[in-house]
């Protein structure tokens, strides 16, 4: 290697280092959004959005209608320009190295659209011809994975929405992407279809070992399959939440206790140091209190000693849905 070459190489290494964001937790994120902004005219549709997605994660991008989810996804896939900031896929900028970045992405943006006059197979072949390495064998593999064998040679116009959705995922998976992006994949599906989709997405995430980003305006549809949700509203990042995390930060389990003597019960519980009474519901003769699991037996003993009859103890699980509505301020149309 001559001096000029090695000089060039070290330069490119340096520029690589300075271009790439600091790596957190060792692994490079599959998808990284850095202050991504989209302005159309004077309107800012997505405003300085930043988050990462790592391999093996299924991340939900949540927000009410009009929050900017689809716009954000279109920027990630290069369908629309980015006004400010950058999107990197496997370390490659979608703006500067479109082909190298997008090669790692499989996606369905909005509805899965195909050439209706062609068969499902012909549509997959169309997709395969736009890749460098997809073989006939891989096409058949994906077809089997999604159970499309029987509909394969039917024209796509005869497909149900659920079938089109599956074909959409099949085409997205063809080139073994590192990142699967699905925009509102449950739109228009019936509950059975939604469940089916959820199941095969989980299956695929395991089988193919990739990151999945799913956008939705309905948390309940994705919370069961996501490991993490990113919530946005009015184009801005609102919050990020891991799902299935034991003991969310700062939150004690909340109990709802129905008793006969409400006032006595309140006094008894307030006397206990480990219990915080947060609410008294006279109409239902119920107390709401917070305490740790290990304190619950003592709580019950105390009530019994005070001769309070306990009819029911249940945990008031604040669902993610409630929190989601809280984060996004209900269902207001922004």
């Amino acid at each position: 290697m001559n001096a000029a070459q090695s000089n060039k190489m070290s330069q490119s290494n340096q520029s690589n280092q300075s271009n790439q964001p600091r790596q957190v937790g060792g692994a490079e994120p599959v998808l990284r959004l850095q202050n991504v902004t989209k302005r159309i005219g004077r309107k800012t549709i997505v405003d300085k959005l930043s988050f990462d997605v790592h391999t093996g994660e299924i991340v939900g991008l949540l927000g009410p209608n009009g929050a900017g989810k689809t716009t954000a996804i279109r920027m990630m896939t290069g369908l629309i320009g980015i006004s400010e900031g950058d999107v990197q896929i496997a370390g490659r900028s979608i703006q500067k190295h479109f082909k190298e970045a997008i090669v790692h992405v499989g996606g369905i943006i909005e509805n899965p659209e195909f050439y209706p006059y062609m068969s499902g197979y012909d549509n997959l072949k169309q997709a395969a011809r736009m890749t460098d390495s997809v073989t006939e064998q891989r096409i058949m593999e994906v077809i089997t994975l999604l159970g499309l064998q029987e509909a394969l040679h039917k024209k796509v116009k005869a497909y149900s929405l659920g079938m089109r959705q599956r074909l959409g995922i099949a085409q997205a998976l063809l080139d073994r992407p590192k990142l699967l992006i699905l925009d509102e994949p449950t739109n228009g599906l019936d509950p059975a279809g939604i469940r089916e989709m959820r199941d095969y997405l989980k299956k695929i995430a395991q089988a193919e070992g990739m990151a999945i980003l799913v956008s939705s305006h309905l948390l309940s549809e994705v919370e069961q399959m996501c490991t993490r949700v990113v919530v946005i509203q009015n184009g801005r990042f609102v919050t990020e939440q891991h799902i299935g995390e034991q003991g969310r930060v700062g939150a004690l389990p909340e109990l709802q206790i129905r008793v006969d003597k409400l006032e006595t019960a309140r006094q008894v519980l307030e006397a206990l140091e480990t219990v915080q009474v947060t609410e008294v519901r006279e109409s239902k003769s119920e107390l709401i209190c917070q305490t740790e699991d290990r304190e619950v037996p003592a709580l019950i003993d105390a009530l019994r000693h005070a001769d309070v009859a306990v009819y029911r103890i249940s945990e008031t699980k604040k669902t993610l849905e409630d929190e989601f509505l809280q984060w996004t301020g209900g269902n207001q149309i922004a």
Partner: peptide, 14 residues
């Protein structure tokens, strides 16, 4: 019109 433009443009082809 068919919406297939998205299918076409999110491939590793310019």
């Amino acid at each position: 019109a068919q919406g297939t433009i998205k299918f076409l443009l999110i491939r590793s082809r310019s």
